[in-house]
């Protein structure tokens, strides 16, 4: 089978790359100040996780990501449904959505710090701002594709607007909403970690930049590894779920 063959090659290539990195680090071609050998990173990460030193920072980051993406999903779907019904407003906002991701949202972070102080709010808001438009756009996209027959059926059954949204339109648009959710989680993660990295007092992003400023590679590399593993795993899980739903949809 072709798919399994490509998966196999992918693992071999990634494994080979890690092995190469290990050899280059161990042989001293890449010095210890620049990069730690991958096996050391994994060992230090395990030790760091067991020691519990990072628990508070991890909790902070994960809670902020969850709050930012949760708010983005709720607000994004609500706004998407509202704009789908209000054609004039949608026409005006369409160019904003199209250019939104060209604007560096981090540029607003300094303003948010001045407005709200150095607490959690600026970080959550940065993640939220980065995530919400992706949810709106995907919600609109999904609602545009709900088939007319379904809407007519809802009218025949005399469902009210809220019942129609909950029982017909939203379930029918579910695959697109899920794409919005996946992007929301990824963008909220990027937003929160980035904000922590730029300026904050807690969180994994802050710990990475703190370790970097102290040349503490034995903390920095394991934490970078932790972020990479978490975001790749989250993304893979959500896209797997997305594919399962899409497959079920195409079968029925």
């Amino acid at each position: 089978m072709k798919l399994t063959r490509s998966v196999y090659y992918r693992f071999v290539l990634i494994g080979g790359f890690v092995l190469l990195l290990e050899l280059l680090c161990r042989s001293g071609v890449i010095d210890r100040l620049t990069m730690q050998p991958p096996t050391d990173m994994v060992r230090d990460l395990v030790l760091l996780l067991i020691s519990g030193k990072m628990n508070a920072a991890m909790l902070k980051t994960f809670v902020n990501v969850a709050v930012a993406s949760g708010l983005a999903v709720i607000a994004g779907i609500a706004l998407g449904v509202a704009l789908h019904g209000w054609h004039a407003a949608r026409q005006v906002l369409e160019p904003l959505f199209a250019t939104y991701y060209a604007i560096p949202i981090y540029a607003f972070y300094p303003l948010l710090i001045i407005m709200f102080g150095l607490g959690d709010v600026p970080q959550v808001l940065t993640g939220f701002m980065l995530a919400v438009v992706a949810v709106i756009v995907n919600t609109l996209n999904g609602l545009d594709r709900v088939s007319r027959v379904l809407m007519k059926t809802a009218r025949v059954y005399r469902l009210g607007p809220i019942a129609t949204a909950l029982k017909v339109t939203l379930p029918s648009a579910a695959p697109y909403l899920l794409t919005g959710v996946r992007l929301a989680v990824a963008y909220a993660f990027i937003g929160v970690i980035g904000a922590e990295f730029i300026m904050s007092r807690t969180g994994i992003g802050y710990e990475i930049s703190f370790a970097y400023n102290n040349f503490d590679n034995r903390v920095m590399y394991p934490l970078i590894l932790l972020i990479l593993i978490t975001s790749i795993a989250l993304n893979a899980a959500l896209s797997h779920w997305e594919r399962v739903i899409a497959r079920r949809r195409s079968r029925s």
Partner: peptide, 19 residues
């Protein structure tokens, strides 16, 4: 082989790679 690698790379917070 490489498409999933590219897509994962797209979704990680690249700011952590800055150090």
């Amino acid at each position: 082989i490489f498409e999933p690698v590219l897509v994962s790379f797209y979704s990680i917070p690249k700011i952590t790679l800055y150090p």
